[in-house]
Design a protein around this nucleic acid. Structure first.
Length: 529
RNA sequence: GGGUCUAUGGCGCAGCCAGGUAGCGCACCGGACUUUUAAUCCGGUUGUCAAGGGUCCGAAUCCCUUUAGACCCGCCA
């Protein structure tokens, strides 16, 4: 693997950006500004996957800039989509009556934004802000209202027969051979999807529709029976997804958009529409797998297993999110909050590699790891390494100290020689590690098998701990008890850790017992005798 | 029906995209040292890199076929 083969910073992001540029050059498009796009769902609570789409697109923007091009990320909220089902946990808001309406026309149940859709989008935008992603925000409702897509809609509707056939051929969906790929918002009941467009009056730029019951999922949405004509240049309505991206790509001059495999078919059709109907080359793409929860189910907005950026940030820092999203793009991954500690530590390792404290033999590998570190820092890496504390250790410590947590954990860390002085940087870590242990501490009672000699030694220890007078040196006492009762000290310590911490090792146990409280420990231990 | 991904020592995974001696963490086993305990140090575990074929001087890595599992699409967005 030679030096010259390495593109940019050696990551998949750089390679992708290079492919993109090469393709644009081949097509011969203007490269003064390369726009990349990311879609934001607005119908449900945005999970980490939606965030990933934007974060990765931003990575590509950074790579493009790094290779000398100007670039911009458009974050586009699909807030003209209709509400299909009520998200888990939002049953009490009486959203039932709004099913089928565009989410930007539904009031915000929480009352803090101009609409339901804006509320949802804001959660994602807030997530992006928190991890440091910069973007240009666009909304579907504005895009349509401003008529930015009206020429594209006209062209698409004029070619609806051709498109309908192509959809059938490309992905086997027959529906658009019969109906137009355009959903007017019913003038009478404000609903989408119920209003089925049957005919396009090309000269008037109007579609004929009738509003009738329609089935979405397993639910029937009531239509109001209204029959009308909608002016595509003035009245509210939207293109079907199968053709909408193409119109948007063209209108915004988008050169890159990543997509999840769940919308693979739509992208395939849209690429065709862009190339063949709108006659604008489609953007470069990359497909990614969905994040799955630990059971292997897709993380869905409507189910309860939502991992949002906000929730993640309670337990891990923004670097851990960025590392997760930038380290690789391929492959289905099962994701859960329990991945956070690993990612927190992995970031520290990566930082050590970047600053040369960890040696990596393979040059290409080193370049790649350093590159990854730079992307996780959004190509603005710190000049100096941060202070590293093993995150799992922090979790263990915060599990033990619930009162005066910050102070006591900090003191322990100094005792251990992990840090020299209390640091505000560490305070933050103690806080999130504490959140983690509070939320996920399962208090698993593990089976500890004890033989008679061990039990005897244990009961002597319990007695010793219960003495009013504090033994001078608990550490030494434990050692002596083990020795004089024919228990291997090594095993005895192990037993104690298993009982107290649920692990086979831990911090130096003498001072540790003092920290928790002798009586407390004696009580816990006595349950095993 | 269509599509995508995954398959690597006991477990979890990296390596695969841009082929060049099969690695990491954990677990486990043995040893060393030690009142040693966030232990540390040394060594180990007979991995057909799912199976078969192809390309190549050389394949875990690229291509084809097969098997198993997962997920997505075939409403809508």
């Amino acid at each position: 693997m030679s030096e010259e083969k390495i593109i940019g910073k050696g990551t998949w992001i750089d390679k992708l950006a290079a492919e993109l540029i090469e393709r644009e050059k081949k097509i011969g498009r203007n490269l003064d500004l390369i726009r990349v796009e990311s879609g934001l769902g607005a119908s449900g609570i945005p999970h980490i996957g939606s965030l990933g789409d934007a974060v990765r697109a931003y990575g590509v923007k950074l790579a493009l800039e790094n290779q000398g091009y100007k670039s911009e990320l458009i974050a586009y909220s699909d807030d003209l989509d209709g509400l299909r089902k009520i998200p888990e946990g939002m049953q009490e808001f009486g959203l039932e009556e709004h099913i089928g309406k565009p989410v930007s026309l539904i009031p915000d149940p929480y009352g803090c934004h101009d609409s339901y859709g804006m509320h949802m989008s804001s959660i994602l935008l807030d997530g992006l802000d928190k991890v440091g992603i910069k973007y240009e925000f666009r909304r579907a409702i504005d895009t349509y209202k401003q008529g930015l897509l009206k020429d594209h809609i006209h062209t698409i509707l004029q070619n609806s027969t051709k498109i309908g056939n192509a959809i059938s051929e490309l992905v086997g969906q027959e529906k658009y051979q019969k109906y137009l790929p355009y959903f007017p918002v019913c003038a009478k009941c404000n609903r989408l999807y119920t209003a089925e467009a049957t005919e396009y009056l090309s000269d008037k730029k109007k579609v004929k529709y009738n509003c009738h019951d329609t089935e979405i999922g397993s639910k029937i949405i009531k239509g109001c029976g209204h029959e009308g004509e909608a002016d595509i240049t003035k009245d509210l309505g939207k293109l079907a997804w199968k053709v909408e991206f193409a119109a948007r790509w063209s209108a915004f001059d988008i050169r890159f958009e990543a997509y999840g495999k769940d919308i693979m078919d739509s992208v395939k059709v849209n690429d065709w529409v862009a190339d063949e109907i709108l006659e604008v080359p489609h953007p470069h793409h990359v497909k990614y797998e969905m994040f799955l929860d630990k059971g292997g189910k897709k993380i869905s907005k409507s189910l309860g297993n939502v991992i949002t950026a906000q929730k993640w940030l309670e337990f891990g820092n923004s670097k851990s999110i960025l590392l997760l999203l930038y380290k690789r793009i391929t492959g289905a991954r099962e994701l859960g909050f329990d991945d956070i500690p690993g990612l927190m530590n992995e970031y520290n390792e990566l930082e050590d590699t970047y600053f040369g404290r960890i040696k990596v033999d393979n040059q290409a590998k080193l370049t790649k790891l350093k590159g990854l570190y730079e992307y996780v820092n959004l190509l603005n890496p710190p000049k100096q390494s941060s202070i590293h504390v093993n995150y799992r250790l922090l979790i263990e410590l915060t599990k033990i100290f619930k009162e005066n947590r910050n102070e006591r954990v900090m003191k322990k860390l100094i005792d251990y020689g992990v840090i020299k002085n209390p640091e505000t940087e560490i305070e933050k870590l103690i806080e999130i590690a504490g959140n983690y242990s509070d939320e996920f501490d399962e208090q698993e009672k593990i089976e500890v098998s004890l033989d008679d000699t061990a039990k005897k030694a244990l009961s002597i220890l319990v007695t010793a701990l219960q003495e009013e007078e504090e033994p001078e040196d608990i550490q030494n006492t434990i050692y002596q008890i083990a020795k004089s009762n024919d228990v291997q000290p090594k095993d005895f310590f192990k037993i104690l850790y298993q009982i107290i911490l649920g692990t086979s090792r831990g911090p130096k146990i003498g001072p540790f017992i003092t920290d928790i409280g002798r009586k407390q420990v004696a009580k816990t231990l006595s349950e095993y005798i």
